[in-house]
């Protein structure tokens, strides 16, 4: 099982971040591993995400259904990403702090089948090993895209 808890801070006001972040089509800008997004139901945030992730020397391509489970305006987002290999739940919480925004995130997930278990382990490793790099990149993208 994957369980990751962490947070990052972005030098941008929460209102501005919120105006972008709840738009699912913005995701590939923050996460280049998401190659494409196809909106199924914009109002309910349902979409198909196409992932193209480099894991070591391999490239893993798969599609996943994303679905919003719960959203509270400028407070938190709880979403589910479900594919044939893995199911993830991601929760973001937002706090405004002196003109900066603190985004706390919790990622849990379970692989399905042997290949899914491999992907679960690989994702855990990727997210842990590149933790700081990912956080810096996300903060940078948010700052550049929004300001």
């Amino acid at each position: 099982m994957i369980e990751i808890n962490d947070h990052l801070e972005v030098d941008v006001d929460l209102d501005k971040i919120w105006s972008k972040i709840d738009n699912i089509e913005f995701l590939p800008k923050i996460f280049p591993e998401i190659e494409k997004v196809e909106i199924l139901d914009r109002k309910n945030y349902r979409a198909i995400l196409w992932f193209n992730t480099k894991i070591g020397f391999t490239k893993v391509r798969f599609e996943a259904n994303s679905e919003l489970i719960e959203i509270v305006d400028k407070k938190y987002i709880l979403s589910k990403i479900d594919s044939k290999y893995i199911e993830l739940k991601i929760r973001f919480e937002f706090d405004q702090l002196n003109g900066k925004t603190k985004i706390s995130y919790n990622i849990t997930g379970v692989g399905k089948g042997n290949l899914g278990k491999l992907l679960e382990n690989a994702l855990k490793r990727l997210l842990t090993k590149n933790r700081n790099k990912i956080k810096e990149r996300v903060a940078e993208v948010l700052k550049n895209e929004i300001q």
Partner: peptide, 16 residues
């Protein structure tokens, strides 16, 4: 690069 895919295989049944 190889370790990035081999290590995730260790604590899991091997894929076919």
């Amino acid at each position: 690069d190889i370790a990035d895919i081999v290590i995730p295989m260790l604590l899991a049944p091997p894929p076919r």
